[in-house]
């Protein structure tokens, strides 16, 4: 349980948000040309990181907008919040 600083509404309780999982998984540009392995990679395979993770969140019980968060999954500390389409911060790896 933690607070998330929504870039549109400000700091709110995590229970107002829904998690969209790993961020920056790009939808394939040519879906018809993908092999089964590539589809599996896109649909199912996840880094599932213990440590600093880039992820998507939706302010489901608020403005309903999507945005990105950098969070340390080993202690739930949020390190950075940035809007969709913005470049991810470079100081985290």
């Amino acid at each position: 349980m933690f607070l998330i600083n929504c870039p549109f509404c400000g700091e709110r309780d995590q229970s107002e948000f829904s998690s969209g999982g790993e961020a920056h998984i790009v939808r394939p540009k040519q879906p018809t040309e993908l092999s089964d392995d590539e589809w599996a990679e896109y649909l199912f395979m996840r880094k599932n990181i213990k440590g600093i993770q880039f992820e998507r969140w939706n302010h489901a019980h608020g403005c309903r907008k999507w945005f990105n968060v950098v969070r340390d999954t080993s202690n739930d500390k949020i390190l950075s919040v940035y809007k969709m389409g913005e470049k991810p911060p470079v100081n985290y790896k």
Binding site: F44, M45, R46, K50
Partner: peptide
């Protein structure tokens, strides 16, 4: 819960979320 971390050591990705 730590399966993905061990998989990563072998260069594998698993369809898991912890």
């Amino acid at each position: 819960g730590h399966s993905s971390i061990i998989a990563n050591m072998a260069g594998l990705k698993l369809p898991l979320e912890s």
